[in-house]
């Protein structure tokens, strides 16, 4: 699989580290145990298009949000995770 890093350009998957689901959001510290458990442990496993976090470990060290079809490995979009995170409502610690 080849991923187009928005900063570095197209690279082989060996330069990246997979992290997981990019749709989950870290809960507010006061959230219930169930909410925290869901954030840490519960993941959907869609057969198809998915939003994932990848890290360009051997390149620019940017975290990326990769929109990918997990069945075909077709990649629809790659965005800097920081831009995605800034665009959503900031979560304060």
């Amino acid at each position: 699989m080849r991923i187009i890093c928005p900063l570095c350009g197209e690279r082989g998957a060996e330069e990246f580290v997979y992290h997981g689901d990019a749709t989950v959001r870290r809960p507010h510290p006061d959230s219930s145990a169930e909410t925290w458990n869901a954030y840490v442990h519960l993941r959907d496993n869609p057969a198809g298009r998915h939003s994932e976090l990848w890290y360009h470990a051997a390149g620019c060290h940017a975290w990326l949000v990769v929109e990918r079809d997990v069945r075909t490995h077709e990649i629809f979009a790659v965005t800097l995770a920081q831009d995605v995170a800034l665009a959503r409502r900031p979560v304060t610690a």
Partner: peptide
């Protein structure tokens, strides 16, 4: 990097 770029980008 995960914390500073993804969790708390501000």
């Amino acid at each position: 990097d995960f914390c500073s770029q993804w969790l708390w980008p501000e």
